[in-house]
Design a protein around this nucleic acid. Structure first.
Lengths: 114, 114
DNA sequence: TGCGATAGTTCGAGACTACTGAACTATTGA
DNA sequence: TCAATAGTTCAGTAGTCTCGAACTATCGCA
């Protein structure tokens, strides 16, 4: 099994971040990780937006979030704990990610959050 | 030839906007349209980031930007004039698009804008 | 030490999407 | 009416995504 790979802050790109967040499942997962403030394990998201995802699909979505630079993942025993890299991202990209999350919250607020 | 289709403001989604801007060519085109303030015709972008694009590819990229809700396109004689829908977008999504553009400018600034 | 359970990853095949050359439409100007 | 210009559509290929099956890694327990 390959170790979990995280890009250095300077290797993160705007396009990569936007791509990672352009998928409804991934933006939902990231919004929850960012909002919760504490580490989230992957299997917390086996059902997301009223839909059950295969483990392999979920694993791939986390990989995309991680390699885009949005989250930091650490193996702890049998599980992988994920936290948002929001502080670093803010340093490099200003309030971009924050304003995306606010717009997303607004949108899910108005159409039921499903 | 089908008429140019624009989504209503309420049909625009965060995910759709992010997807449209997650492509290096499209974010570049959109950044230039938004920065210029005056209508831009498609063929102004036949070379973008030192790369020559086929007309069909360019046409497809404009279609994605248009159908995501980022630009408004109007046929004037033989050409299509494109403007940013930034005012409408600001109304609905706050400063999201603005902060993406600022982060993008910052990034292209630091690595030569190519 | 070995076994079963849990959490997540990798692989590969089929489904889906994107890119682009060729042919097309629409408009203008001579 | 014809040629030129601007952009669109089509369709084939190339590339990406999804998800089931098989796998790896770690833990707790006997």
């Amino acid at each position: 099994m390959k170790p979990l790979v995280h890009p250095a802050l300077e290797d993160i790109t705007v396009e990569g971040l936007l791509y990672a967040l352009s998928d409804p499942v991934r933006v939902r997962i990231y919004a929850e990780i960012a909002a919760s403030g504490c580490p989230q394990i992957c299997s917390n998201f086996l059902t997301v937006s009223n839909r059950t995802l295969p483990k392999s699909t979920l694993s791939m979505h986390f990989k995309v979030l991680r390699e885009a630079g949005l989250i930091r993942s650490e193996r702890h025993g049998v599980e992988v704990r994920n936290v948002s890299r929001c502080e670093e991202l803010k340093e490099r990209f200003g309030d971009m990610v924050g304003s995306i999350l606010r717009a997303y919250q607004e949108q899910t607020g108005r159409c039921g959050g499903v």
